[in-house]
């Protein structure tokens, strides 16, 4: 059963990677990153049940990942709002100050 869960997580991760690389709206990029984080969480929980040494530590680690991801989303959205006030857009390829 473990490889099936790993495959599902890999598919979700790759969908998130594709979205993060190609979407131009910065909110959608953040959403795609959340999708990738969720795929990793699924791996952790699957290994917590089907790994060589099943234990609850994987689930505890998942809880920590979820809280760090929540903090990341809050800061990301705040940065986006501040950038939107400054530039009037959320298109990721127009944030190019550091390239000039």
């Amino acid at each position: 059963m473990l490889p099936s869960y790993l495959m599902l997580a890999a598919i979700l991760f790759c969908i998130g990677l594709y979205g993060a690389l190609t979407k131009r709206n910065a909110v959608i990029v953040l959403i795609s990153i959340e999708l990738m984080l969720n795929a990793v969480n699924l791996n952790l929980v699957a290994f917590a049940k089907y790994g060589a040494l099943p234990s609850l530590t994987g689930q505890v680690f998942t809880l920590f990942t979820i809280s760090v991801a929540a903090a990341e989303v809050a800061v990301g959205i705040a940065i986006l709002i501040a950038l939107f006030r400054l530039k009037g857009t959320v298109q990721a390829d127009e944030f190019d100050e550091m390239r000039r």
Binding site: Y5, N41, V45, I66, A69, A70
Partner: peptide, 14 residues
């Protein structure tokens, strides 16, 4: 996967 608490947290947080 028998991780009910993580499922609950997932619904709450995500």
């Amino acid at each position: 996967l028998e991780a009910e608490f993580v499922a609950f947290v997932q619904v709450l947080i995500y």
